[in-house]
Structures are given as structure tokens and as C-alpha cells.
């Protein structure tokens, strides 16, 4: 395991400087909307929290960390210019183009399907990471400081309703922010708001409920309702919904090997059907062990 304090320091510094834990400027990774016709005003603010955009950079980071994971050389993480060069390294060419394209497609898919059921809009400049990782590390000070800056930007734009795309951001904005600060907005996951079209698909799927949706936010039933409405067949396993099992993702940066072993256990349990996920961290982590995991949006909207 990487020393937790070292990792936390790396993340917290990056968040303070660039707004996200990997230290890459949001403007450089948040590109899904560039080619699309988006509205800048409306009822529901589309808020990605940057997790999907960061995911393609996580795999190269983990390959790097795996080498430090159980070694005394991890002290290098302490050095300031090391952090800077790591962020630069992550931005460089090794990030697979395919996963960047997939990320953009997932986000624009979600945006446009929402657009057909609600009045949704997007302001790229105020879309930022939620800070949830610092909360999970128990670093309340840095979390609250970051949350305040997120809320201020939302307030400046008079945002009252927010639609989120991943479970971590949803939980942070909906359940954790109000514990620390006054919030005047309502938060819903896109899954609650979408109105899927009937599709004709013959494949059998299995659902991997993310822990935050399955237990903390209790949205698993909504997921199933929407899948049924879209005519998608899925099998239920014991460990789903409230009893879902973790993909290992949350500890990927501290202990990538352990995280991978957890993903292996989970993928074995899910069986051979195509896996539906709805969290970028689950998606990436389940794919690290060669599974056929897909994002919910790819199942619901692909080809539509």
C-alpha cells in the first residue's frame, strides 16, 4: 500500500491547484461538448464532476503506482516536481485514444438522451471534480474548502437543479455537501431523470451495481425500472442491489494490485453475461481484469 498520507497529499495538492486529483487542467480533459450543440441555460445543470474524463488517465497512473505499491521508493511522491511531472506524464501520448473517445461518447450520449426528457444545460467552466476522495480519506478540511469553491461557482450561476452522471459525484453533492455547507440546489442522478426508448436487444446482461448507488443512494430499483422500460434482459445475482459487491476501484490508487484482485473476484461472481456498470471507476476497474463491462449509457443509447 502507498502510504495514505503521501497519496492524500498528492491528491489534495492537485485539487487545490487544478481542481482535480490528477493535476490535469479541467479544460484539457473536458472536451466531450466541443463538437456538440449544447445549451448554456435551462432547468437542470448537467454536472459531470470530471470522473468520466479522468478515468482514461487512471490506468497509466496505476501501472506506475503498482511498481511503488509495496516498495520503499514511494517517497518520491513527496517531491513537488515529481507530482508535476507525473501529471505531465499522464497527459502524454500513452493514454489510449480509444478510451478518450469512449468517454466523450458516454457523456454526450447521456446529455442528449436527457435532453429529450428534461430541459438540460451545460456550463463547462463550472463543471469540476467533487472532492469526494478527500472526504473518503477523512480529510475534512481540504474537502470542505474544495466543496465551498464548487458551491460558490454554482451559486454565481444561480443553479437550483443539478443532474449528475456518476455515483461518487452524486453522493458527494447530494449527501455529503449538505453535511458541511449550506446548499440551495437539488441533485438527481441522470438515471432517475432519463426516459429510455424501447430497444430490441437479444443479449443477456448482468448488472454490477456501484456501491454508492446500491447502498448509499439506493437507486438500484430505478436502474432496473429503466432497463425494463428499454426492453433489456438482465439476470439477477444474489450480490446485487443493496448486497452488491465492490469492484475494488476506491483503493486503486493506494493499492492497485489489491484493487485488481477484488475486481477479479467480482468479475468471476458476475459470470459470463455482458456486465452493465454505471460508474466510470467500476467500469475501468472491472476492465482491468479483462471483463466485458459496458457503461449503462452504451447499453441504453448506443446506435440510437
Amino acid at each position: 500500500m502507498i502510504k495514505p498520507k503521501l497519496m492524500l497529499k498528492f491528491f489534495a495538492k492537485n485539487v487545490a491547484k487544478t481542481g482535480n486529483p490528477l493535476g490535469i487542467e479541467n479544460a484539457r480533459i473536458n472536451r466531450w461538448w466541443k463538437e456538440e450543440q449544447i445549451k448554456r441555460r435551462g432547468e437542470w445543470l448537467f454536472f459531470t464532476g470530471m470522473l468520466y474524463q479522468l478515468t482514461p488517465y487512471i490506468e497509466p497512473l496505476l501501472k506506475y503506482i503498482e511498481r511503488l505499491e509495496n516498495s520503499k521508493f514511494q517517497e518520491v511522491l513527496r517531491m513537488a516536481n515529481f507530482s508535476r511531472s507525473l501529471s505531465a506524464f499522464l497527459l502524454s501520448s500513452i493514454t489510449p485514444r480509444k478510451s478518450l473517445e469512449e468517454t466523450n461518447k458516454i457523456l454526450s450520449n447521456i446529455y442528449f438522451i436527457l435532453n429529450s426528457s428534461i430541459d438540460v444545460f451545460y456550463i463547462p467552466e463550472i463543471d469540476t471534480y467533487s472532492g469526494i476522495l478527500m472526504y473518503e480519506f477523512g480529510d475534512h478540511d481540504n474537502f470542505a474548502m474544495h466543496a465551498r469553491s464548487v458551491i460558490e461557482k454554482l451559486e454565481e450561476h444561480g443553479v437550483r437543479r443539478i443532474v449528475t452522471v456518476d455515483p461518487h459525484t452524486t453522493y458527494a453533492l447530494k449527501n455529503v455537501y449538505p453535511k458541511f455547507l449550506e446548499v440551495n440546489f437539488e441533485v438527481k442522478s441522470y438515471i432517475e431523470l432519463l426516459d429510455p426508448k424501447k430497444l430490441s436487444r437479444s443479449e443477456e446482461y448482468v448488472i454490477h451495481d456501484p456501491c454508492y448507488y446500491g447502498r448509499y443512494l439506493q437507486l438500484s430499483e430505478v436502474v432496473r425500472e429503466k432497463l425494463k422500460k428499454a426492453g433489456i434482459n438482465y439476470e439477477e445475482i444474489r450480490n446485487s442491489g443493496k448486497l452488491t459487491n465492490c469492484c475494488g476501484g476506491p483503493i486503486e490508487a493506494l493499492a492497485p494490485k489489491i484493487s485488481k484482485s477484488i475486481a477479479e473476484i467480482r468479475v468471476n461472481e458476475l459470470g459470463r453475461s455482458k456486465i452493465i456498470t454505471m460508474c466510470p471507476i467500476c467500469l475501468a476497474n472491472l476492465r482491468r481484469v479483462k471483463s466485458n463491462a459496458l457503461d449503462l449509457s452504451e447499453v441504453l443509447f448506443d446506435g440510437s
Binding site: P4, G138, C211, R215, L243, T244, C246, G249, I251, L254
Partner: peptide, 29 residues
């Protein structure tokens, strides 16, 4: 810090003990 805070322990605990929240508090201290 190795916990994923997945919350399964709290869900299946007969005494409904909020272990993930205590783990976060432990991390905090």
C-alpha cells in the same frame, strides 16, 4: 485506508453498526 468503504459490512450487520463511517473517522484521526 485499505477499506473501499463499500458499505457491505453495514448492510449485512445484524446490529446495523456503521463500520464505514467509523473507518472514515479513524482515517480522519
Amino acid at each position: 485506508f485499505l477499506s473501499t468503504l463499500c458499505g457491505k459490512c453495514r448492510e449485512i450487520c445484524p446490529m446495523k453498526i456503521d463500520i464505514p463511517e467509523m473507518i472514515r473517522e479513524l482515517r480522519r484521526s
